[in-house]
Amino acid sequence: MEGMENRGHEAHPPGGGRLEWIDVARGIGIVAVVVGHVWTRGGLRDAMYSFHMPLFFLLSGLLSRPQAAGRFARRQLASQMRPYAAFLILLILADQIIETMKGGRPIFHDWPGDLAPIMLGGSWLRGPFTIFWFVPCLMMARILFNMALARWPDPLDRRWALLMLPALPIAYGAVRFAGLSPLGMLTVPMALVLLWVGAAWQRVNWRGWMLAPLVPLSLAGLTALLPTLNMKAADYGWPLLSIGSAVATSLLLFRLSVRIAPFSGWIAAIGRASLVIMYLHVAVIHYLSPYVGRPWLLAQALLMPIAAYYLIRAVPGARRIFL
């Protein structure tokens, strides 16, 4: 997906660094996502949930550039919803086969009645499909963000405050509708804020003193001193503080990615497969969790989607559909 999958030739973080750091940051982020879904409770889970989804929104905002609004929206709809539909259909078919072989009942078994929740997506998709809220949410947020960015190309322009200040109360108020999020749209207001923060951060020169506020704020989230996040349900913990901790952790991880990029090719390789991992890892966890321990489950939830990514890349027809 653009913002996770496609990259410009001159993407630089504040303070320098080459393109490889972007894939390293994606790799760290997607590993955090998988860890948070393998360990479903406890301190490790809370630490991952304190930042893992905001990291991808921030990174997408950091890579954003103003484009013609109509053309950008059409391209997003074509390039993002095609793999979304392809992976969703693939997993629905896989669930029909796997659950039938196990003597169980597939998740979607009431046809044609199940077509409605499948089309609604978002909060209606659970089990192996639970992550499918993210891509349409990011896509819609990027379309809306680009419309504003095309009008005000400088994210530090004070007119952005006119847009972002109303977005925050809307985002925090959305939790009242947590059970109603078609295609993940409930999270779009907060996604817009994070995209803007990422874009604004690109304009800021890194200074060493920034560690002083960022590190304590990050640790407060990682150690669960602040309530953790559940972005799918529009639960953002304590107003401003929990999401601020996620931003702090992500920005520190971006700096770390810059530093380790020259010798972290394997993390960058995971990052390049992040879209396929995002779509497939929950299904691997869902079907294998009764049979293997968590460390092995983590390994399989990463390795199997990575293998699928390289298989898809090797087949031109599959590449056009799934990537």
Rank of each mutant, 00 (worst) to 15 (best):
L222I: 03
W160P: 14
A224H: 07
M190P: 03
I98K: 00
R105T: 15
P66C: 09
I92G: 00
V188N: 01
N146I: 04
L297F: 01
L88Y: 01
A220W: 04
M231N: 08
I92Q: 03
G244Q: 00
R82T: 10
A268V: 03
P117H: 02
P239N: 15
G265S: 02
F177M: 10
V38R: 08
V188E: 00
R126A: 06
G122W: 14
I97C: 04
I131H: 06
R105A: 10
L194P: 09
V34Y: 05
S50T: 09
W209C: 10
R71T: 12
V188D: 03
R259H: 09
A318E: 02
P166A: 12
P316W: 09
A268R: 07
L163Q: 12
A200P: 13
A47Y: 05
V258Q: 10
T100S: 13
R142W: 02
L77E: 14
I22A: 07
A161Q: 12
L194H: 00
T40D: 04
F57W: 04
E5T: 15
S242L: 07
E5I: 07
I97L: 15
F322G: 01
L303S: 01
A273S: 08
L93T: 00
P117A: 08
F87C: 09
R45K: 13
A212E: 08
D46N: 12
R71G: 14
G103Y: 04
S245I: 05
M48C: 14
W266V: 13
H37A: 01
G244I: 02
S289T: 11
H9C: 08
L214A: 01
R272H: 11
H109Q: 05
L302K: 02
G27Y: 06
A273F: 07
Q80W: 15
F51H: 12
L58Q: 11
G265C: 04
W160E: 15
G121P: 13
F51R: 03
G16H: 10
P112N: 08
S250I: 04
G271R: 06
L156E: 13
G184N: 07
I306M: 13
F87E: 02
M101P: 02
V34R: 01
R18P: 00
L115E: 10
P153W: 01
S218G: 04
M48E: 08
P83W: 05
G3D: 11
V258E: 09
P153G: 05
G27D: 13
L211E: 11
A178Q: 06
M1N: 04
W206C: 00
I118G: 04
G179W: 05
L115N: 10
P13F: 15
G104R: 07
S289A: 09
P169F: 12
L162P: 06
D235T: 06
M190H: 13
A86S: 12
L165A: 15
M101Q: 15
P106H: 01
K232D: 09
W21G: 05
S264Q: 01
V31E: 06
A318G: 14
D157M: 06
L63F: 09
R176P: 06
L186P: 01
Q76F: 08
P305V: 00
W206A: 03
T130I: 10
I260K: 06
L240M: 12
G244Y: 09
L180N: 07
L225I: 03
P216F: 07
D95F: 00
L163Y: 10
V188T: 10
Y279I: 06
R255S: 08
T187F: 08
A161F: 14
R255T: 15
T249S: 11
G127C: 00
M101I: 14
D110Y: 01
T223G: 04
L251N: 07
A308V: 13
